[in-house]
Amino acid sequence: MLDLSRLRAIDFHTHAEEPCGCHADDGYDDLQAAMARYFRAPWQHPPTIDETAAHYREQNIAAVIFPVDAERETGYRRYANEEVAEATSRHPDILIPFASIDPARGRMGAREARRLVADFGIRGFKFHPTMQGFYPNDRMCWPLYEAIAEAGVPALFHTGQTGVGSGMRGGNGMRLKYSNPMHLDDVAVDFPDMPIVMAHPSFPWQEESLAVAVHKPNVWIDLSGWRPRYFPPILIQYANTLLKDRVLFGSDWPMITPEGWLEEFAGLPIRDAVRPKILKENAMRLLGLSSANERKEIP
């Protein structure tokens, strides 16, 4: 049960990692090590879901947490959504479970999405076009989007270039073109009632991201994957004004710690009335949670 009145923030972007050594030796450890160097992450091995929950509980921050189903494109073994949901269910006071399904799974993926929402309490879905190797506006995605729209839960999309594959030979085979936020404009048109969250400051397409979010009222932005001191001024300007009700705190744990992100965010020129919206209130509204002075159990 989330005690929303006591939480100081809701982190909308954290990654579920398997215990080191529990997955096949398929190169995933090399990717994680390269990302840790890029972000200067403070851990030796990626934290488990239980370790993530303990860290966030200590920080008094709730976390949306998810895997990434990139098995087809990368060869990295899929961390099953059911496993993630079951692990997350041990920490209902602090973790909010999302799932991830490769859109190339087609109608099978759509059936899985419906089952995960109905039977496992999944609250949203994560997509990573760069890792999963697809354009978000490819019509093959539509059956899965239809299932998500029916469920009324958010679809969270990686956008822009962050640290994944950075510095690795050939970028680890990952193509940045898939994560241009403008591809999501088509999705927002055809699924106007599906909440769409564009993750990260969308470098090098920041203005495209802002344009889509301003134009399409079902589109949101999370601020994960970048330390706040690097946010471009135009992003801060829009977060303070036109998009103040649709911008979300996100860290990109475990690469960036929530407390480190919040410390830098405190130094940004964000208006006093807007700051609590970004840190917690917007996420509460998007997730359909109760007001800050009530307790609500996530089903």
Score class of each variant (00 low, 15 high):
L2H: 06
D3K: 15
F12K: 06
H13D: 07
T14C: 09
A16R: 12
A16F: 11
E17C: 14
G21P: 12
G21D: 10
H23Q: 14
A24Y: 07
D25G: 04
A33W: 10
A36S: 14
F39I: 02
A41M: 09
W43D: 00
W43H: 09
P47W: 08
T48K: 04
E51D: 02
T52R: 13
T52L: 15
A53F: 05
H55D: 10
R57A: 12
A63V: 05
F66V: 04
P67H: 05
E71D: 07
Y76I: 03
R78K: 12
A80T: 06
A80R: 15
N81E: 02
V84E: 05
A85N: 06
E86W: 13
A87D: 10
S89I: 02
I94F: 12
I94R: 14
L95H: 04
I101W: 05
M108E: 15
A110T: 04
A110H: 07
A113C: 06
D119G: 05
F120S: 10
F120E: 08
H128K: 07
P129V: 04
P129E: 06
G133M: 08
D138N: 09
C141I: 03
W142C: 02
L144P: 03
E146K: 14
A147C: 01
G152H: 05
Q161F: 02
Q161S: 07
M168Y: 11
N172Q: 11
K177V: 10
S179L: 11
N180G: 01
M182F: 13
H183K: 09
D186N: 14
V187Q: 14
F191E: 01
V197K: 07
H200P: 04
S202R: 10
W205S: 00
A211W: 14
V214Q: 13
H215R: 15
H215M: 12
K216P: 02
P217K: 11
N218K: 14
W220V: 01
I221Q: 15
G225L: 10
G225A: 10
W226P: 00
P232G: 02
P232A: 03
I236W: 08
T241H: 13
R246W: 02
S251E: 05
W253H: 15
P258L: 05
F265T: 03
A266G: 12
G267V: 02
K277E: 09
I278A: 05
I278F: 03
K280T: 02
K280G: 01
G288W: 11
N293E: 12
R295V: 11
K296Q: 15
P299Y: 06
